[in-house]
């Protein structure tokens, strides 16, 4: 897609992957951060990680297994929270621990069996070994995310404002919430190859947190967060190739650095000391 801009095929794929993952994760991050569901990010990322480990262990496609397992976890979150009358955050904690246990168990076992290297890729990602199909899948999920937000913008806004007030207004809260969970599951699973199970959380939460330091309304946050993710990721990919550095952790560190700067510079925090 960006072949006309970047000659090197490997770099081109890496940039394309980062761009599409940034769009999807940046937009979804705005929603889950505002709904105080940041733990959804790490639960889904570890569910995808566990799914990929299962796929690898069974010798089936790790990406498809990641999608199925994280979709399975997404399907559990809502009903388990409702049934157990627990806050979604507590349910996420339980499912996170379960996913992590499955993943560590299988990765350790595979290392013991001499298949450790491929398993480690799941942890840290491998942005330079992507296939064209991976990029198309990421492009599709970014488009799906954009369509989801445009189609359900008013319901999503109501959920982000206050879930109980939204429900009392007659908004179909559960339907939109469950769709959100599934899109997060698919986005995270597909992004796993790029930054890995441990760092995908950064792409989900940090750009939205940076945007919230400067944006006063939700529309601007939905534009700013993916733009921030996209710019920083592209810079990370460029610097990674230029200075031969590991790309995923570099992107994570750059995003964290930008977050720190944004907290310091945020004009939303300024106090007016003027006397009138």
């Amino acid at each position: 897609m960006f072949g006309f801009l970047i000659e090197n095929n490997v770099v081109c794929h890496a940039v394309e992957a980062m761009v599409f993952a940034s769009i999807a994760c940046g937009i979804l991050g705005v929603i889950i951060s505002r709904m105080s569901l940041s733990s959804l990010g790490f639960t889904m990322s570890h569910a995808a990680f566990a799914g990929a480990a299962i796929g690898m262990f069974l010798g089936i496609g790790s990406q498809m297994a990641a999608i199925f397992f994280s979709a399975f976890v997404a399907a559990l979150i809502g009903p388990v929270s409702d049934k157990a009358k627990m806050a979604a955050d507590a349910t996420l904690g339980v499912l996170f621990a379960m996913s992590m246990a499955v993943a560590i168990f299988l990765v350790s076992y595979m290392q013991y069996m001499g298949r450790g290297l491929t398993a480690t890729n799941l942890l840290f990602g491998n942005v330079i070994s992507l296939y064209r199909e991976d990029i198309y899948a990421l492009a599709a999920v970014s488009a799906l995310t954009v369509i989801f937000v445009l189609a359900f913008f008013k319901e999503i806004s109501a959920l982000m404002f206050n879930m109980k007030i939204a429900e009392a207004s007659g908004v179909r809260v559960k339907l939109v919430y469950y769709i959100l969970l599934f899109i997060v599951a698919i986005s995270v699973s597909l992004s796993l190859n790029i930054v890995g199970g441990l760092l995908i959380f950064v792409l989900l939460v940090t750009p939205a947190s940076i945007a919230s330091q400067f944006c006063f309304n939700v529309r601007s946050m939905f534009v700013a967060a993916p733009m921030i993710a996209l710019s920083v990721s592209a810079l990370g990919v460029w610097a990674g190739f230029k200075f031969t550095l590991p790309i995923a952790p570099l992107v994570a560190l750059l995003l964290t650095f930008v977050f720190a700067i944004s907290v310091i510079l945020s004009f939303k925090r300024r106090i007016n000391y003027k006397k009138y």
């Binding site: 505002r34 008013k154 319901e155 806004s157 109501a158 982000m160 404002f161 007030i165 939204a166 207004s169 007659g170 908004v171 919230s212 944006c215 006063f216 309304n217 939700v218 946050m221």
Partner: peptide, 14 residues
């Protein structure tokens, strides 16, 4: 990140 006008509009979303 919601203005008063947006919040009042949310009353009609259902």
């Amino acid at each position: 990140p919601f203005t008063v006008e947006e919040v009042v509009m949310m009353g009609r979303y259902g």
